[in-house]
Simulated assay, not measured.
Amino acid sequence: MISGAFAFLVQTLGNLFVIAVLLRFMMQLFRVPFRNPFAQFIVAITDFAVKPLRRVVPGLFGLDWACLVVALLVEL
């Protein structure tokens, strides 16, 4: 019973994090200004996972492809 609830909680938090990372990528794609509070919140939530991966995965065409790699890794 508890393990099922814990698995549901972990899966839900993982899915919310993937949504935040994909939102970060979409904000870059549509050139959303990162000075608004919502954009700053998304960047603050996802920075710990995206920043280290930027050293390995380069950006291309002005987009941060490390965001997509993080989303893929979390989803797996």
Rank of each mutant, 00 (worst) to 15 (best):
I2A: 08
S3F: 14
S3N: 15
G4V: 12
A5N: 14
F6E: 13
F8N: 13
F8Q: 10
F8P: 00
L9H: 02
Q11E: 10
T12H: 07
T12R: 09
L13S: 13
G14D: 11
G14P: 00
G14N: 15
G14M: 02
G14W: 01
N15Q: 13
N15I: 07
N15G: 14
L16Q: 05
L16H: 00
L16Y: 04
F17T: 15
F17V: 12
F17S: 06
V18I: 15
I19R: 00
A20E: 05
A20D: 08
V21Y: 02
V21I: 13
F25V: 11
F25I: 05
F25C: 08
M26N: 04
M26S: 13
M26D: 01
M27P: 11
M27A: 08
Q28Y: 00
L29C: 11
F30W: 11
R31V: 12
V32C: 10
F34N: 11
F34C: 02
R35Q: 12
R35F: 09
F38N: 02
F38I: 15
A39F: 00
A39Q: 10
Q40T: 07
Q40D: 06
F41Q: 11
I42T: 10
I42K: 10
I42L: 04
V43D: 04
V43T: 12
A44H: 01
A44Y: 00
I45C: 07
I45D: 03
T46H: 08
T46L: 02
F48K: 08
A49I: 08
V50L: 02
K51S: 06
K51L: 04
P52H: 05
P52V: 06
P52E: 01
L53D: 00
R54I: 09
R54M: 09
R55A: 12
V57T: 04
V57R: 04
P58F: 10
P58R: 07
G59I: 09
L60N: 11
F61D: 08
G62P: 02
W65L: 15
W65P: 03
C67W: 08
C67I: 03
L68A: 06
L68F: 07
V69W: 01
V69T: 14
V70K: 05
V70F: 02
A71P: 11
L72R: 13
L73A: 13
V74Y: 03
E75W: 10
E75G: 04
L76Y: 03
L76S: 02
L76H: 10
L76K: 09
